[in-house]
Structure formats: C-alpha cells, structure tokens
C-alpha cells in the first residue's frame, strides 16, 4: 500500500468520525467487544454457547411482557432473563444429559411468549428484525455509558474471581473438593452471561451478541492456551471485527450488524483452516521424528 493511499484512507476515516452516529457505533463496538471478549471466553471454555443463545432468545419473552404491561423494555426484560437464565443454569447443572432439550424448550417458549404478548397488546408494534439484528448505527449516547458500566462490572467480577473461575471451568469437581464454592460461582457466571446478553441485545441485536460472544473467543482459543490471554485476544478481535465490519458496511452500503458478523465468520473459517493445517503439520513432524530409522513412509 502506497503512503499516499494510506494517508488518503486515514483522512477518509477521520472524515467518517465526524459523523456522530459513526463515532457512537465504533465506540459501541469497542465496549461490546470488552464484555463479549471476557464473558464469551467463559462461554466458550464452559461450552455454554447454547445456553447463551437460549437466554438471548428467551429474553424476547421479557420484551413482550414489558410491551403488554406498558413498562420500559428493560424493566421487563431484565427480571425475565434473570429467571430464565437461572432456570437454564439449574437445568444444565442438575440434568446434564437433558439440559440441551430443556434449554431448547425455554428458548422457543420465551420467544413464543414474547410474540403472543405483543399480539395481545393492541396497537403495539415491535420490530422483530431490530431485536435480531439491532441497530449499532443508532446507539444513543446514554447506552454507551450503560455499556461502559456493564464492562466495569464484568471486569471487576472476572478479574477479582479469576482464579476461582479458572479452577471451576477447568475441573469443577476438584474445585469443589478443594473448597471453591462452585455452585455459587456457576450461577454468578450464568448471571454475567445473561446480563451481557440482554444489555447488548438492545444495542447490537441478538445475533451480533451471540456472534461476538462465541466467534472471537473461539478464534482466540485456537491460538492461545491461557485463559487470561484468551480474554484479551477475544476482546481485541471483537474490536477489530466491529470496526472492520462497520467500515465495510459504510463503504459498501450494507447492513452493519450482518457485515460485522460476516467479517467475524470469515476470520473464524480462516483461523480454523490455519489451525488444522498447523496441527496436521505438527502431527506429520511427530510421525517423521518417531520413525527416523525405519525409513518407512506412512501412507
């Protein structure tokens, strides 16, 4: 890339930053990435993506509840999601073999309740599409502060209880025996997931929250074997994906949320291929060094 070209691009970007909505969107992307990078790492290593998806979808029931009773969306969604996430958490702990079914049922039921309640409320129109894909380009200033607060809470809890979370995630039974209160910790984690999901759905939509809670952390997991670093890398990747996706969507005139997910998804596939190749390479090297004398080549 030539210098002139680069300066030109920088100028264009600075130009872009003059738009309030773009500045807010990029800031939102950064703030979302912190929450999703940290909580997403816990989701990925504890294999809770399905539960996160369940909480996110069931939250629509809370939205319907708010519409039905004419209260503010968060006033209905937060308690509804806390209850549904804890129920899913109980199911995944107590009924390990059947937890996916139970979560699946609650997932569908929550959405159905939401849609029916909104049907029953005459004259109320809720845009399901904006629930699914959000509108990162229309993030109000107040939401940014709320997200910053959420990030602080998450970081405070996860940094403070890092060694406990690590111990529980790696080997719950050992953690329990050694005296870590794993049950409490587990529900704290579920609540963190629920909080992250519902706060961010409002801002960037359900699909983007799930994407950013799983994709950056899974990519990070492929390239680091340290939970702390995984959280940092996932956050950085999230920031990269949201910024890249936003810019791309702006220049190509595409839906921002979907473009961010596309960027993230493409990188996921690339990293997956890179890692498989690297592993195959390693296996090949091991095989070669394991049979140096025989001279027999493996088929």
């Amino acid at each position: 890339m030539s210098t002139r070209n680069a300066t030109g691009e920088t100028a264009a970007m600075l130009d872009l930053m003059h738009y309030d909505f773009m500045r807010n969107a990029l800031t939102a992307g950064f703030l979302v990435s912190i929450a999703c990078g940290v909580v997403g790492t816990l989701v990925v290593v504890n294999r809770l993506s399905f539960l996160a998806g369940g909480v996110a979808h069931a939250a629509y029931g809370g939205l319907g509840l708010s519409a039905f009773f004419g209260i503010s969306p968060m006033a209905g969604t937060i308690p509804f999601s806390i209850v549904s996430s804890l129920l899913m958490g109980v199911a995944s702990r107590r009924q390990k073999e059947r937890s996916d079914t139970i979560i699946g049922v609650m997932w569908a039921l929550g959405m159905a309740i939401g849609i029916i309640l909104i049907d029953l409320k005459p004259g109320y129109f809720a845009d399901l599409m904006s629930y699914l894909f959000g509108s990162i380009l229309a993030v109000p200033h107040s939401s940014l502060y709320l997200m910053a607060a959420l990030d602080c809470i998450i970081l405070l809890i996860v940094v403070g209880l890092y060694k406990e979370f690590l111990s529980m995630s790696y080997d719950e039974e050992f953690a329990l025996v050694s005296g870590v209160p794993v049950a409490t910790l587990y529900y704290v984690m579920i609540l963190l997931i629920a909080l992250t999901v519902i706060m961010l759905i409002r801002v960037v939509g359900l699909i983007l929250v799930i994407a950013l809670c799983t994709i950056p952390a899974s990519i990070a997991e492929m390239f680091t074997k340290d939970l702390r670093r995984m959280m940092a890398i996932a956050t950085a990747l999230g920031m990269f994906f949201t910024t890249g996706g936003l810019l791309l969507s702006y220049y190509c005139n595409l839906t921002s949320g979907a473009t961010i997910i596309m960027v993230a998804g493409i990188f996921y596939v690339i990293s997956f291929v890179v890692r498989s190749r690297r592993q195959n390479g390693m296996r090949q090297r091991c095989r070669d060094s394991a049979t140096p004398r025989s001279g027999v080549t493996n088929p």
Partner: peptide
C-alpha cells in the same frame, strides 16, 4: 497453582 486457589481465599 489451582491446588492453592481455595486455600488462599476467595478473590
């Protein structure tokens, strides 16, 4: 190090 996590105390 996990072996010492609980003995060290929560948080």
């Amino acid at each position: 190090r996990m072996g010492l996590a609980a003995a060290r105390g929560m948080g």
